[in-house]
């Protein structure tokens, strides 16, 4: 991934971090890396909207596809150095909810609503035939205070009932 971002245009609202949008079609075929494509990078609110408004809404897609929003410089794979010791909260969604949840999640990430310092790596939306899922990835899987805070913020920004079930998966176990 490109490490340097262009300076923001005058009048634009800078984000705390630079991010990239990615997607991976047919994630189960060949290697994940080969199917992974970067859409583009941005570091201001205005550039985010300009990308986002041109992206197809997840609920309009059929077939298997993963969307990612990750900090620039981190590839959205378990193998990346920033993800290797990390993990992710996974929330399964019944069909029809993905677009709204995904939008609320990425707005919370870009707006720094998680308040966990540098811990957030990114987020992923997986569209599948029966159900969709979203996940929030962080750097340090064994940092309990951080993972709990991410879980609670996720429930708040998505307006989920407190009883909602979510799984935390360690990337090192997925790699094994």
């Amino acid at each position: 991934a490109k490490k340097e971002s262009l300076p923001p245009d005058p009048g634009e609202h800078r984000l705390q971090f630079s991010y990239a949008f990615w997607y991976c079609r047919q994630p189960r075929l060949r290697s994940y890396d080969q199917n992974l494509k970067m859409i583009g990078t941005f570091n201001t609110v205005e550039k985010f909207w300009s990308f986002y408004s041109h992206l197809v809404r997840p609920s309009e897609l059929s077939g298997q596809i993963d969307f990612h929003l990750f900090k620039e410089g981190i590839r959205p794979m378990w193998e990346d150095e920033a993800n290797r010791n990390g993990g992710r909260w996974v929330l399964r969604l019944r069909k029809g909810l993905a677009s709204r949840c995904w939008e609320n999640l990425i707005l919370a990430i870009l707006g720094e609503q998680f308040m966990v310092g540098e811990e957030i790596c990114g987020a992923m939306l997986s569209v599948r035939s029966q159900e969709d899922s979203i996940s929030v990835w962080n750097k340090t899987a064994n940092d309990n205070a951080t993972t709990i805070r991410i879980r609670d913020t996720l429930k708040r920004v998505l307006n989920l009932p407190p009883s909602t079930h979510m799984d935390y998966k360690m990337n090192s176990e997925s790699l094994r």
Binding site: G11, H13, L15, V45, E46, W49, S50, L110, G111, E112
Partner: peptide, 21 residues
């Protein structure tokens, strides 16, 4: 340093700014 924090409502407001079309 200071963290750049944006509420959802503010981000939504900027959606319709001329730059973000």
């Amino acid at each position: 340093g200071t963290r750049i924090i944006y509420e959802r409502a503010f981000l939504m407001q900027l959606r319709n700014s001329p730059v973000a079309k």
